[in-house]
């Protein structure tokens, strides 16, 4: 089993952006589908206001705020990579795909993540009032 896994890992060129982007897109996509289902389950509690407010109170705890920042990172990765994929589909920047991945998806994505996560970290975790 371990040899099969190591063979799989060695079989593909991980240093190339496209393969890495493919796995990022796949894993974040699966994670977001899972989150969507959980989210719909929470939203269903709108039928019972007390239960809904209790759920929201739980989700404003620092641990869940940290999870929210992680969710933001997942969304940004999936979205920026999705824009890159749409560009590939349209035939834009095919010869510069590594630069597009590293500078656009990862670089601009990291900048957006910091911009979005900083207020969430400051107001959700540092200045959290129970």
């Amino acid at each position: 089993m371990t040899s099969a896994i190591s063979l799989t890992i060695r079989k593909y060129s991980w240093k190339y952006a496209g393969n890495l982007a493919f796995w990022i897109q796949r894993l974040t996509g699966l994670g977001l589908v899972f989150y969507l289902i959980l989210h719909v389950h929470t939203i269903h509690d709108l039928r019972d206001p007390a239960k809904f407010d209790a759920a929201l109170a739980t989700f404003s705890k620092p641990f869940f705020k940290l999870g929210e920042i992680f969710l933001l990172a997942t969304v940004i990765l999936h979205a920026m990579n999705g824009i890159r994929l749409t560009m590939v589909d349209m035939g834009v920047g095919l010869t510069k795909q590594r630069q597009v991945f590293w500078y656009f998806t990862i670089g601009l994505g990291a900048a957006l993540l910091i911009a979005g996560a900083l207020p969430m970290f400051i107001y959700g975790i540092l200045r959290h009032q129970p």
Binding site: V40, I43, H44, D45, L46
Partner: peptide, 15 residues
């Protein structure tokens, strides 16, 4: 899942 989500709004007396 869509039914479960839509039911949060449709037929919800509080909303």
């Amino acid at each position: 899942v869509a039914y479960w989500g839509i039911m949060a709004f449709v037929g919800n007396e509080h909303l």
